[in-house]
């Protein structure tokens, strides 16, 4: 039985909790509340064209950071799966990729809104933007591939392989390509990144906590999604017996 191993691991002793939640979940909540409140209320450098849209740094850029971290988590779980063939790792890899995809979509939406108010259009033919869109396509293809197979171990093995290739190509696409061609995006093609405007580093006080908060939220979501799947498998076995 392939998912017996999952069930044994579910009932491991719970971590110490504070008011029902593990410490890092509280940390995530606190940091997110802080970054939303401070992100909208704190002083930002007054700049032409950008104006208040510079606050998008706290939300758009953090989305991409969290997405990259989650996709890296997914990659690590895929590699772990190929090393020990434990299906738990496959479930985690899949759910991390799903949450990463969600964050990527949110990153696209927030970036698109920002572009509307600074560049004047929701979408431009730009290396950075296309890279982002293609990244989404790669991970959607990963989801399609998973759904095209029903045998568990085989699906896990083959999608793990695809996940590793997808990650490599995706990273090439969004890290290397925009540096080779011109781009309108801040931080590329000779445009200064927002870090340059942040003269007294005040923005970092919100930016970094926001990254940590959103990443922890993503890990939390990943854990919940994976747990739902483990419980469903448990239910399945129960019904079977």
């Amino acid at each position: 039985m392939s998912f017996i191993s999952n069930i044994r691991l579910i009932s491991k002793p719970a971590d110490k909790t504070i008011f029902g939640l593990v410490w890092w979940k509280w940390l995530s909540i606190i940091l997110l509340v802080y970054s939303v409140v401070a992100g909208f209320l704190m002083k930002v450098p007054a700049l032409p064209i950008l104006h208040e849209t510079i606050r998008n740094l706290y939300f758009h850029v953090t989305m991409w950071f969290s997405m990259m971290i989650l996709l890296t988590v997914s990659l690590v779980y895929s590699i772990l799966y190929l090393m020990n063939f434990n299906l738990r790792n496959d479930t985690y890899a899949n759910e991390a990729a799903n949450v990463g995809l969600l964050f990527g979509t949110l990153g696209l939406i927030t970036g698109s809104l920002w572009a509307k108010f600074t560049w004047g259009a929701f979408w431009l033919n730009d290396a950075k933007l296309n890279g982002a869109a293609i990244g989404m396509l790669v991970y959607l293809a990963y989801a399609v591939l998973r759904n095209s197979m029903d045998e568990e171990q085989k699906r896990a093995r083959i999608s793990a392989v695809y996940n590793i290739i997808a990650y490599a190509m995706f990273m090439v696409f969004i890290m290397v390509m925009p540096r080779l061609v011109d781009s309108l995006h801040p931080g590329n093609g000779g445009n200064p990144g927002f870090g340059k405007y942040d003269l007294n580093s005040d923005m970092r006080l919100v930016f970094y906590p926001s990254i940590i908060g959103f990443t922890l939220l993503g890990v939390w979501m990943m854990q919940l999604l994976a747990r739902i799947r483990f419980l469903k498998q448990k239910q399945l076995i129960k019904n079977f017996r």
Partner: peptide
């Protein structure tokens, strides 16, 4: 479906 996004870079 699988090869298009991988071939794009």
């Amino acid at each position: 479906v699988l090869s298009f996004p991988l071939l794009l870079p």
